[in-house]
């Protein structure tokens, strides 16, 4: 489902928070515990659940 933006174009998240969140996501994906295909399926499922098109 497509939605219009809820915040103004150019709105940015606090840089430290954005970097830390990205770092957490990247560190999690890098874990060797789960194979890459399963990791990607979970990532896509989470993106769908959060209605995240990026």
């Amino acid at each position: 489902m497509e939605r219009s933006a809820r915040v103004a174009p150019g709105t940015s998240v606090d840089g430290t928070l954005r970097t830390a969140l990205g770092g957490f996501a990247a560190a999690t994906v890098r874990l060797p515990t789960v194979d890459p295909v399963t990791t990607e399926i979970v990532r896509l499922r989470c993106a769908h659940h959060h209605d995240c098109g990026t």
Binding site: L21, G23, F24
Partner: peptide, 13 residues
């Protein structure tokens, strides 16, 4: 790495 990033994200939040 996960532990450190999770802790950093919490502090930043």
């Amino acid at each position: 790495d996960v532990s450190e990033q999770l802790r950093a994200a919490n502090e930043a939040a």
